[in-house]
Design a protein around this nucleic acid. Structure first.
Lengths: 213, 213
DNA sequence: GCCCTTATGTGAACTAAATAACAATTGTTT
DNA sequence: AAACAATTGTTATTTAGTTCACATAAGGGC
């Protein structure tokens, strides 16, 4: 596994590159330079070239990168050929919105099961996704070989559910809860803290000028 | 403005500290150490101490930090006394969810106006927030002295709306669009890219083990 | 009031990431 | 086929952030 020495920061940018390359390809563009990419995704051109170089020499000097080849390459790295099944835990406002969000359209993931305690929606289909009782969490996760969960539950029950998810064999949690979860070391947590994003933005605005945060 | 030399990374953690301190205070805790905080928020204790030290000597050696004093202090830094008015641009699935999200409860921000083109909801109240036509964007932003916008519109119109928002005097945009926006240098953009978060999580899971991303 | 324990605040070391700068190489034009 | 223009890949540099490690100071017990 040669990808082991790819910097975290680079890994986080890969999906962004991939998405933009797809756009270019759809628009019929065949070649692109690091400078053009830089304009679009707002990372320094040198950063982009370095990111790419971790995977070998993907471009041609004096020419740039071949859009299709590059996209195919990143597609493989991002496992675009295999569809990941994702569980949505907590079908409240945000959960509902994420069900409708349709990750599938723009990524290799699909929400294939949702869980809640609300009897009104348990055993219904929401936005094409079956909603199960939380009691069935472990069974469904295992049956459907789900290894990523999106956690959109109230804070007080978040840690408990994280424990159950981890025990059930989930390897990643996209955590919309304000809580910083405790998980075993083989589970990866990605925090999406909306209040924090907004607060941080406000802080920067109040204390400094503009520019990217 | 002494805060000018506070690292970006520190600034991003401030709201997290603040929230956790509030929790502690509500629970009646009067003192806390960097180690206890570390357990809760999952940043290294040394990082926490250094973060705090940018604002002076807030703790007592051998004792720790006074929860109430610390919270008050951070509250001021985060401008918790002034309520920021926020506009929500785009009342789709995600927009609706954010309207119900109630930032107000846990932060100093409140969505005070929403905008959409959908005639069915224009001039209605959604989750307590008036929905205006996009035609009124400039006027309302100016009248209500809104300086932050949450952008939850389809990608194709995102840049155009960002332009209008910037021109209307907004200083910050919380961008839920996959597009990397072009804005004047006095406007700050905070990107929340849900697809990217999920994709990144998947990449890490597929290529390495667990731990924080 | 003295000793011991605890936990801060910070200088120094380390690690990660971004940027600059340019030689090397390719395509294109004449 | 030679000269030119463009753009990569990478070495070196700079910047940012994290962590270590410990002297310093405060509180609490005896």
């Amino acid at each position: 596994m040669a990808e082991h020495d790819i910097p975290r920061a680079t890994a986080k940018r890969l999906p962004i590159y991939y998405r933009y390359l797809k756009l270019l390809l759809d628009a019929g563009t065949t070649r692109v330079s690091s400078n053009e990419l830089s304009d679009a995704v707002k990372f320094d051109a040198a950063t982009i070239r370095r990111d790419f170089s971790y995977f070998g020499a993907l471009g041609k000097r004096g020419y740039g990168y071949d859009v299709k080849a590059l996209m195919t390459f990143f597609g493989e790295i991002l496992n675009q050929d295999t569809l990941a099944s994702v569980a949505l835990v907590g079908v409240g406002n945000l959960g509902q919105a994420l069900l409708n969000f349709n990750f599938h359209q723009s990524s290799n993931a699909r929400i294939s099961a949702a869980f809640d305690i609300n009897e009104d929606i348990v055993n219904t289909i929401q936005a094409g996704v079956p909603v199960y009782s939380l009691d069935d969490l472990e069974k469904q996760i295992s049956d459907q070989r789900i290894d990523v969960a999106i956690l959109t539950v109230p804070a007080p029950v978040a840690q408990d559910l994280a424990n159950r998810l981890a025990k059930a064999g989930v390897h990643g949690i996209l955590n919309f809860t304000p809580l910083r979860l405790d998980v075993p070391s083989d589970v990866r947590v990605q925090n999406v803290d909306l209040t924090n994003e907004l607060q941080t933005l406000l802080y920067f605005i109040n204390n400094f000028g503009g520019a990217e945060a």
